[in-house]
Design a protein around this nucleic acid. Structure first.
Lengths: 250, 250
DNA sequence: CGTGGAGTTGAGTAACTTCAAGGATCGTGG
DNA sequence: CCACGATCCTTGAAGTTACTCAACTCCACG
């Protein structure tokens, strides 16, 4: 699973990290759910128009405020997109794993990127120039529909979080946040579900609208009850069903 | 501006309220920002495939939980989309005025409608069958791009609210909520901006994650300071600049 | 002219945050 | 290989925001 650490990031940000070697074809994206509705020819063309890039752990794909020149799809690794408010607060808007799009919203609305997606692991992404991708969408209706479906899911998730954050107490929000993470990057193990995404208490707080203190306290309590098993940047759900109960009941 | 009260809603919900008279052509939608990127021929075809419907004040366009058979565009009037949580809480997810889409997200994700949009005034909408609209999108790339742009804005708004609800105090959230309303349905008047959308304190609370009590207290305080002028289901911003200050400063 | 939805206002309190301090774990360089 | 700095995590105590509970007023409409 561990990908060899890459040499050194050149320049700042994502610039100039193109993967040496062959240009991508359909085989790189065939397995992704996002592209299922495209046929082989379409996938090849879409992939051929992208540039692959490696992003080292801790590097940003792009930065909040920059004009949206490109849009990305995560092939491997993962990103957390954090937004900084004018007064210095931070929020984690989204975590994206393999198959996730990033930067597309800004490309379509033609407004600056609203957040900074930072790689939480060494990652591999495909990058399309803004105009290239919209041209592809015009050419392949199936691609447009895939985008629209993906954005629809984004909206539903955002609305779910919105609903949670204004009707639910912290404990339940944290439960929901963790379940969402598990759904997105959980792996069944021995006895439980492991969250493969490296994430701190702080991050969970920024995702659920709580302080890291409250998150820590809550997770400690759950650990007492055998519901989860925590570690540094690491979390295992021992009893997901109990979490579901906390998330959905009184 | 006042549209004559329509006779009587037949059946329940939105069924059977088709407007008698001519089928729509491009002229019905030409002025809407959403359709700007389409040419006249495309607009005609898109409009010709829609059915116009009148929805009386208080009626629902569709109901949360129903399968998404159609998607709608508001031509006149307005809707507030409220979602009811499993445990009985309510949230106002969105208000839509002329030019706003409704139900599209569910059509694309193929999941049940997540909320119930209720007309706050007698309203006129266009309705497209789900398959009809996706077929139109496949035929006209410009339509796809318009949809994608609109959804992008939805996402940005949802994220903005999400950020607000987890980093800001009630007073600022209320300020933001009211400014958002004003931007969407505000009308410049004598001295100030009137919110034409009929809305209760309760609704504002459900939009901003506050109780109606807190909203009432806050608005009362602002009224004292001459920032707003309130009435029953009615609100005038006397000093929008002051609200901006409250929304964006310490 | 009464009824019910909408709005106002006060008092008490719970849920979280803030403030504060210390402990655990990682990885890096000597 | 071990020491040390930087993160990350834990836990206690004090402090506040905004919610809950409760009572009352105002207005629009039939």
């Amino acid at each position: 699973m561990a990908r060899p650490r890459i040499e050194l990031p050149r320049h700042d940000g994502a610039a100039g990290n193109a993967v040496p070697g062959r240009r991508p074809d359909g085989s790189a994206i065939r397995h992704l759910e996002f592209f299922q509705a495209l046929d082989a020819v379409e996938r090849d063309d879409v992939a051929a128009n992208a540039r692959p890039k490696r992003i080292a752990k801790g590097e940003a794909l792009f930065r909040q405020g920059e004009p949206p020149r490109a849009l990305f799809m995560v092939l491997s690794g993962g990103f957390k997109a954090t937004q900084v408010t004018p007064d210095g607060h931070q929020v984690v808007m989204r975590v994206a794993g393999p198959g996730g799009l990033a930067g597309h919203v800004s490309v379509f609305t033609e407004k600056p990127y609203p957040a900074t997606p930072v790689a939480v692991t060494d990652s591999l992404v495909l990058a399309w120039e803004a105009q290239t991708f919209t041209a592809l969408m015009a050419r392949y209706p199936a691609l447009s529909l895939a985008v629209v479906r993906d954005m629809g899911r984004n909206i539903e998730e955002a609305h779910a979080r919105l609903r949670e954050s204004s009707t639910e107490r912290v404990e339940r929000r944290i439960a929901h946040g963790i379940l969402r993470l598990a759904r997105q990057s959980g792996r069944r193990i021995e006895n439980g579900v492991e969250i493969t995404f490296p994430i701190t208490r702080q991050d969970i707080g920024l995702m659920t609208g709580a302080t890291l203190h409250t998150v820590s306290r809550t997770l400690s309590a759950w650990e007492q009850e055998g519901i989860v098993d925590g570690g540094r940047q690491h979390l295992v759900l021992r009893d997901p069903h109990a979490l579901l109960r906390i998330a959905d009941e009184p």
